[in-house]
C-alpha cells in the first residue's frame, strides 16, 4: 500500500503525535497560569494575562512560529556569545512545541477561566468553612467540577492544535506532513499521499471526539439534564 511508504508515514505520525502531546502539556500549563492570573486580585497579573491572550490571538500561528524559531536562535546566540558559552542549536522540536504550547495556552486561558467561574463560589467557601485546606479544596471541589466545564473548549483547542502541528514541517521538523512531501516527490503521486495523511488527521479528530465524549460522561455523573 502507498508504494511501501506507509511505515515511513506512520513513523511521521509518531512525531506529529509527540509534538501535539508535548504542546498540549505546555499549553495546559500556560492556560492554567493564565486563567489564575486573569482571576487574581493583582492588577499587574490581570494586565499581563490580557496582553498575552490579546497578542497571541491577533497573530497567525505560522508567523509566531517563525519568529520564535529564527528569532529565538539569534537571542540564544547573543546570550551564548556574551557569556562565552558553547554554541547552542535550537532544535525544531523544542521551537515547534514551545510555540504551539505558547499559542494554545492563550486559548486555554479563556477556556479554563470560564470553567473556574462556572464552579459556584459558595462551594469553595463551604469547603474552606469545613476546615479543608486550600489545596484540598482545589483537589476535591474545584478541579473535578472544572474539568466538566472545561471539556468542550479543551476538545476544540486540541482539535485545532493537532491540525496546527502540520505547520512544524515548515520549520524543518520531520513530521507526517514532511514525510508525505518526501514520498510525493519520490513517487510523483502527491495527491495520493496528501489525501492519505488527510485521512489520518481525520481519524485523529474522530477518535479524539469519541474519547472526550467518554471522559465528559465520566465527569458528568450525577449532573441532571433537562430534556427538551
Amino acid at each position: 500500500m502507498l508504494h511501501g511508504y506507509l511505515p515511513m508515514i506512520l513513523d511521521g505520525l509518531w512525531t506529529t503525535l509527540s509534538v501535539a502531546a508535548a504542546s498540549l502539556a505546555i499549553a495546559s500549563l500556560f492556560g492554567l497560569v493564565g486563567a489564575v492570573a486573569k482571576l487574581s486580585e493583582s492588577r499587574v497579573a490581570r494586565a499581563a494575562a490580557d496582553v498575552y491572550t490579546t497578542l497571541i490571538r491577533s497573530l497567525p500561528d505560522l508567523v509566531l512560529m517563525l519568529l520564535i524559531f529564527y528569532g529565538g536562535q539569534i537571542l540564544v546566540n547573543e546570550i551564548t556569545m556574551a557569556w562565552e558559552l558553547d554554541y547552542i542549536d535550537i532544535n525544531p522540536f523544542v521551537a515547534g512545541t514551545a510555540t504551539l504550547g505558547f499559542i494554545f495556552g492563550a486559548y486555554l486561558t479563556e477556556t479554563f477561566r470560564g470553567a473556574i467561574l462556572a464552579v459556584p463560589r459558595g462551594q469553595i467557601e463551604a469547603g474552606l468553612a469545613y476546615g479543608m485546606t486550600f489545596p484540598k479544596v482545589l483537589r476535591r471541589i474545584l478541579v473535578p467540577q472544572m474539568v466538566r466545564h472545561a471539556i468542550p473548549g479543551f476538545l476544540n483547542n486540541w482539535l485545532v492544535m493537532v491540525k496546527a502541528t502540520a505547520l512544524v514541517s515548515i520549520i524543518g521538523l520531520d513530521d507526517m506532513m514532511h514525510r508525505a512531501s518526501l514520498a510525493s516527490a519520490a513517487t510523483r503521486e502527491p495527491f495520493t499521499f496528501y489525501a492519505a495523511i488527510g485521512a489520518i488527521y481525520l481519524t485523529i479528530t474522530t477518535v479524539s471526539i469519541l474519547v472526550l465524549h467518554l471522559v465528559e460522561r465520566r465527569f458528568s455523573l450525577g449532573v441532571r439534564r433537562v430534556d427538551l
Binding site: L159, A166, M177, P190, Y194, A195, G198, Y201, L202
Partner: peptide
C-alpha cells in the same frame, strides 16, 4: 464540513496545488 474541518488547511492546500498535477 466534517472532512474539511477535520484536516489541516496546509494539507488541503497541498492537495490542490501539488496534488492535482498527478492526474
Amino acid at each position: 464540513t466534517y472532512v474539511i474541518r477535520g484536516t489541516p488547511l496546509l494539507v488541503q492546500l497541498f492537495m490542490v496545488y501539488y496534488g492535482l498535477a498527478q492526474f
